[in-house]
């Protein structure tokens, strides 16, 4: 008993000392190094709920549609998003960016909620169309990032991981109750998309 207590005490001290020896760098000014790059790029889709739900919906819909959509949609999205990002980098004005992003959540959420099964090319075109708006929103901020490449890699990685989250959640469709739960989640995404759309059109504050 005494031996065990001594061992626990030693472990805690080891942990404390380890943490103390790993002091990080403190910067007086934020946005230095890759803080204005990789991290801010990664957090951009995460902190924008409209981006987040739309990207999860892509994964959910892919999982509902099964092969080959389960891999085609998440691969289509970043590729077309990069093209939208190029428009943003070039400073090409795209009308209704916020509306497009909000409608993407509404449309993709509706597809999941209704378990819509259009031909594969229609699903790919729909996902690709909305990806342009998401990409433009990210790409417009890219030139001002401290490290533009790291910023781009950050938001592309986060986008891919959000798709993966949707696909993993979508594995619930193997069970009848899971299928209903996923459709319910799609409904929630569509409802949030409707709210964002109303806000983008100026119907609500």
């Amino acid at each position: 008993m005494k031996y065990l207590a001594l061992k626990q005490h030693t472990t805690k001290w080891t942990l404390t000392l380890t943490l103390l020896t790993m002091a990080g760098t403190a910067s007086a000014h934020t946005e230095t190094g890759v803080a204005g790059g990789l991290i801010s790029g990664f957090l951009h889709p995460l902190f924008g709920l409209d981006h987040l739900i739309a990207m999860v919906a892509v994964g959910l819909w892919g999982a509902q549609l099964e092969r080959p959509a389960i891999w085609l949609l998440p691969i289509t999205f970043p590729a077309v998003m990069a093209v939208g990002g190029l428009l943003g980098v070039a400073g090409v004005a795209l009308p209704g960016i916020e509306i497009g992003i909000a409608l993407s959540a509404l449309a993709l959420g509706t597809m999941v909620a209704t378990n819509a099964r259009p031909p594969l090319w229609i699903a790919a075109v729909l996902v690709g169309f909305f990806a342009v708006f998401h990409g433009h929103a990210h790409g417009a901020e890219l030139p001002t990032a401290a490290n533009p490449l790291a910023y781009g890699v950050g938001f592309i990685t986060c986008t891919g991981l959000l798709h993966l989250s949707g696909i993993l959640l979508g594995t619930l469709t193997r069970w009848p109750a899971g299928r209903q739960a996923i459709r319910g989640l799609g409904g929630l995404i569509a409802a949030l998309g409707a709210y964002f759309s109303a806000a983008a059109f100026g119907l609500i504050a």
């Binding site: 891999w71 970043p78 990069a82 533009p148 890699v153 592309i156 891919g160």
Partner: peptide, 18 residues
């Protein structure tokens, strides 16, 4: 692996454009 490739391709498109 293909998804990772698409991420790298997307990063390449953006960085080249920039």
């Amino acid at each position: 692996v293909r998804a990772l490739g698409s991420w790298i391709m997307a990063a390449g498109i953006l960085y080249s454009g920039f």
